[in-house]
């Protein structure tokens, strides 16, 4: 990995309002910490950091008012709704000592299980590795084309580049092909209610018809009984 250079200014003004003013001028607040030294508040160019992030740079020589610090870009905080970088954390490092870093696993190939009704589930696509800061890979590529349904790829199966060791547990699942369960969508309430209403209607209708029939029969019987009596 290339060691990028970045200029920074020492930042004495802290607090929300002053940082907002800083951001309005195209700068952003950041901090350099670690290595048993006092944390250092700095201001860096927002545009410059974005360019470095796009180029996947993570190791920097930060020039703070003429004093160079070797640092690893530990974390960047973003504004949730605009994706604007708000703050960056840099951790002091020694370029000759190995450090722990998270690296993403780049999947290559189309798993066989996907053609058999499976779906690829990414469990942990980032693994922790240990290596020299200058040897951190952008990603660890792995061919997953042989994965069948219910097959797991674990962190231990990943092929590490030379000089890189795995820190994450070897049994940690990276991804697996699960059988796709298509949930049956429940029928709308109206559709459920309609047959119920029909049944209720039928029942009610039957009862009404029965009652009507009974009444009609009774009346007819009465009339029939009355008529002969009247004739007499």
């Amino acid at each position: 990995m290339q060691v990028a250079r970045m200029k920074a200014e020492r930042r004495t003004a802290t607090g929300r309002n002053r940082n907002e003013t800083l951001r309005a001028q195209g700068w952003m607040p950041a901090v350099v910490y670690g290595d048993g030294k006092e944390p250092l508040s700095i201001a860096i160019s927002e545009w410059e950091l974005e360019q470095h992030i796009r180029a996947h740079h993570r190791v920097f020589h930060i020039d703070v008012d003429g004093v160079a610090e070797s640092a690893f870009l530990q974390e960047v905080a973003y504004k949730a709704t605009t994706d604007r970088a708000l703050h960056a954390d840099f951790k002091r490092i020694d370029l000759n000592k190995p450090i722990d870093a998270e690296v993403e696993v780049a999947f290559a190939g189309h798993p066989v299980g996907l053609g058999k009704g499976g779906t690829l589930v990414k469990d942990h696509i980032k693994v922790m590795i240990r290596c020299l800061p200058t040897a951190i890979p952008d990603a660890i590529a792995h061919d997953i084309s042989k994965l069948e349904i219910d097959d797991y790829l674990t962190a231990g199966q990943l092929v590490m580049p030379t000089g890189v060791t795995l820190v994450s547990a070897a049994t940690m699942p990276v991804c697996h092909v699960a059988k796709l369960v298509v949930q049956e969508v429940a029928a709308p309430a109206a559709a459920e209610a309609a047959p119920a209403a029909d049944k209720a209607g039928e029942k009610a209708g039957d009862k009404a018809a029965e009652k009507a029939g009974e009444k009609a029969g009774e009346k007819a019987g009465e009339k029939a009984a009355e008529k002969p009596a009247a004739k007499k």
Binding site: T119, L180, V182, Q183, V185
Partner: peptide, 9 residues
């Protein structure tokens, strides 16, 4: 979502 992309997770 599940009707529009039934194959998706």
């Amino acid at each position: 979502a599940s009707r529009s992309a039934p194959e998706a997770k």
